Simulated assay, not measured.
Amino acid sequence: MASGSIAEQAAGQLTDQQLLKLFSAIQELPEEDKQTVKSLIDAFIAKRKLQELASS
């Protein structure tokens, strides 16, 4: 198991500092808002994967 806090682990994996700041800010949102953001990100990733499949 990796040591360090989740924030430290994320900082070590995310090279885009703007994304890291956004994710940190999202963590402070109410649970309902966090769930909305997660759903939006999930939908965006699914759309991109489908686009990649359709173009190959």
Rank of each mutant, 00 (worst) to 15 (best):
K34I: 06
K21Q: 15
L22A: 11
S56T: 12
Q17Y: 00
I26L: 07
L50S: 13
R48W: 07
V37Y: 10
S5E: 06
S39I: 05
I45T: 13
Q27D: 12
S5G: 12
S56K: 14
S5R: 08
D42W: 05
A7Y: 03
R48E: 15
K34R: 15
K47F: 13
S5I: 04
I45V: 15
E32Q: 10
S24F: 03
K47D: 14
Q13P: 00
I26Q: 03
Q27P: 00
A46K: 14
R48S: 08
D42S: 15
E8T: 06
A10E: 04
D33I: 02
M1L: 11
Q17L: 07
A46R: 13
S5W: 03
S3R: 09
K49S: 09
F44S: 13
A2P: 09
S5V: 04
L19Q: 09
K21S: 14
M1I: 08
F44I: 08
S24R: 11
Q35D: 12
D42F: 07
E52G: 09
S24Q: 13
I41L: 15
Q51V: 08
M1F: 11
S56H: 12
E31L: 06
A11P: 05
I6Y: 08
A11M: 07
S5Y: 04
Q9S: 06
A2Y: 05
L40P: 03
S56N: 11
L20R: 05
Q13S: 09
K38I: 10
A25V: 01
A7Q: 12
L19P: 00
L53F: 04
E32D: 13
L53K: 13
L22F: 10
L14H: 02
E8V: 02
A54H: 10
K34A: 06
K49A: 11
K49C: 04
G4Q: 09
L50K: 14
L29S: 03
E32L: 03
Q17T: 10
K21P: 00
K34E: 06
L50H: 11
L29D: 02
A11R: 14
S55R: 14
I41D: 06
G4T: 05
D33F: 04
A43E: 13
P30W: 01
G12M: 01
G12P: 05
Q18N: 09
D16M: 01
K49T: 10
A10I: 07
L14W: 00
L29K: 05
M1Q: 10
G12F: 00
A46M: 07
K38F: 11
D16S: 02
L53Y: 01
Q27V: 02
Q27A: 14
V37P: 08
P30R: 02
